[in-house]
Simulated scan of single mutants.
Amino acid sequence: MTRYERRRDVDILLLDVEMGSMDGVALAKAVRKAGVTMQIVFVTGYSDYIAEGYDVEALNYLMKPVDAAKLFDVLDKAVARMRRDSRCLDLQCAEGLMRIPLADIRYLDVRRNYVTVHADRIIR
């Protein structure tokens, strides 16, 4: 059993092609077949599987040894894509349209006909 199978609260999977009992390509295919839309990045020494990375819509395919700057660029891209694709609560307010990512909502305060949204981040 992989760590992913034990803990599903994962946003980005960094996979190698060879990972012991299950290879990374098979895990990526299982993740996609289950309908999970997380970011997948292959980090491997095998260039033979690049085409399969496209099949599972991997964000990137990094060849070992990995340059640290390149890795951080790919991770920044993954986070930016997650933020762009995240589900949001869209509110029309007096100030204009407010977008609040659902993951950033801490709690809602309801009093009669008024709802106050307490969030870590609001996109205007």
Rank of each mutant, 00 (worst) to 15 (best):
T2D: 14
E5S: 11
I12V: 15
L14I: 09
L14C: 12
L15V: 10
V17W: 07
E18N: 14
M22H: 10
M22A: 07
G24F: 08
K29P: 01
K29D: 02
K29C: 02
K33M: 07
A34F: 07
A34G: 09
V36H: 09
M38G: 12
I40T: 03
I40M: 03
F42M: 06
Y46C: 01
S47R: 12
Y49E: 03
I50P: 00
E52D: 14
Y54W: 14
E57N: 14
E57V: 02
E57H: 13
M63D: 00
K64N: 05
P65C: 12
V66E: 03
V66I: 12
D67V: 10
K70S: 11
L71G: 09
L71T: 09
L71K: 08
D73G: 04
V74D: 01
L75M: 11
D76C: 05
K77H: 07
V79W: 01
V79G: 00
A80K: 15
M82Q: 15
M82I: 15
R83T: 04
R83E: 14
D85G: 07
R87N: 04
Q92Y: 04
C93N: 03
A94V: 12
A94F: 02
E95R: 09
M98N: 07
R99V: 01
I100C: 10
P101G: 07
D104R: 05
D109L: 13
V110G: 00
R111E: 14
N113D: 15
Y114N: 12
Y114I: 14
V115G: 05
T116R: 14
I122G: 10
I123G: 02
I123Y: 10
R124M: 08
